[in-house]
Design a protein around this nucleic acid. Structure first.
Lengths: 246, 246
DNA sequence: CCTCTAAAATGGACTAGACGAATTGACATC
DNA sequence: GATGTCAATTCGTCTAGTCCATTTTAGAGG
């Protein structure tokens, strides 16, 4: 039994690069991770197209985590993506739950005046001071995300000193300030990688990224922090576990 | 107080197209949604670059939902993104909560033998029959997602007939079969739009998309359905609300 | 005034090629 | 055998252009 749509079915025309992409997908599925695929110039000859078109197809497959390009070397079949849970636990705990050792590399920490968005999120007067802590998050030495946290200076005096020694911000908040976020609102969207984030995460400028925003609160509803994290879209699949609250 | 990273800071070089992108971002922020931005050929002259480079910058901004391109007309500043909650409620209820009227357009419904993944997800023997229902989800007539659901034929006999009349699959499950999913695992990843999905959602092949997979279960852990939905990455920001379960 | 038609303008897809940067491998040298 | 050097190969970036599809605009004709 096959029932097709009643009406005005759109028949999209397939761009040429998409034919190349499908050809490559078949090839990828017949190979093992790590295997070398033909060079861009070989593909232009084989598929009778230009290098630009081949690169567009390759680029999408790289962005989807199916291929890895290495300049000077070649293009290879990628390892499968990792899944990463969205949970109310810290990065450190999430990593541990997945069998990784989490660490953080402090990129910068500044005391700045809150911009409109940060001030609103943290429920502060515009112009109030906030810490802006930027860290590269690693799981087993592999860079996973670039994370920029915003916290109120008035609320957490001396925070940066404590953070510079510890890898878990949540532990510092709990142990030094007695603050424990219990709810959070997490947003997810797609973005192209800026040069800096791309370099830190070992990918190319413009590669598709997943940007997570976390806005976390204490039990009484007081905002604790506002974080924006950039993850490589070709490496991670996010997983949220949902239940009926009713 | 500014503390920079201790070590080997990478100084990424900025591709030329990224300079164009930043220039355009400034322009966008100075304009209202709906405003016309210069044509590609004008930008080529103004920024002393090639059209390919201009188009790369424009393409990323379109993918991020900042610009809208209309062939034959021009490129315009886009409306802000919509946020879409990840909740254990149905599409119909989610839309209602956001003030939209949800509807569905049936694209196809087939009775097919379960592939490896569908069989595993629904805990069926490989080769068992499943319904594969493909629907275009609309909120206030605007296409939001292309949704492909998989459900066991043995478990829900005659399902497609019921679905053809109703817009809410969850309501059909509850009213006709007495089945109510209470937990779900939702995965989120980035993908480039295939021609078909792009056409259905009114965007271009290759545009960045968010692909949501939903795997839902009854209270006793029995899998109910497995769904894959394609959303336009330039239109929606997903939001998950998290709480500590401990 | 309205309607139809043709031309102009715009974005969409693609080509062929240039040059640069990173890697690899062969080869000469020690 | 170990090491350094250089050339070939690979991907990375960018250019200048062609041709097409769609939309808009201007004008001709009623």
């Amino acid at each position: 039994m096959i029932v097709t749509a009643p009406a005005d079915r759109i028949e999209p025309r397939e761009p040429k690069y998409y034919l190349v992409k499908r050809h490559l997908l078949e090839l990828i599925e017949s190979l093992e991770p790590g295997a070398l695929v033909p060079t861009e110039r070989e593909l232009t000859v084989e598929l009778a197209t230009s290098r630009t078109t081949v690169r567009q197809a390759l680029g999408e497959l790289v962005g989807e985590g199916r291929l890895v390009r290495r300049q000077g070397s070649g293009t290879y079949v990628a390892e499968p993506k990792m899944t990463w849970p969205l949970q109310m636990t810290s990065f450190t705990e999430q990593a541990a739950a997945n069998g990784f050792i989490a660490s953080a590399q402090l990129l910068s920490s500044e005391r700045v005046r809150a911009t409109g968005e940060a001030a609103a999120r943290l429920r502060l007067q515009p112009g109030a001071y906030v810490y802006r802590i930027e860290r590269l998050r690693l799981a087993d030495e592999t860079p996973m995300a670039v994370e920029t946290s915003h916290l109120s200076v008035a609320r957490f005096p001396g925070l940066v000193k404590a953070v510079r020694r510890a890898s878990s911000l949540y532990r510092v908040l709990a142990e030094s300030y007695g603050v424990k976020p219990v709810t959070a609102e997490e947003t997810i969207e797609t973005r192209a990688a800026p040069p800096r984030e791309a370099a830190l995460l070992g990918t190319d400028t413009g590669a598709p990224m997943l940007v997570l925003g976390r806005h976390s609160f204490e039990a009484d509803g007081t905002p604790v922090e506002w974080v924006r994290s950039w993850y490589r879209g070709d490496r991670y699949t996010f997983v949220a576990r949902l239940t009926t609250t009713a």
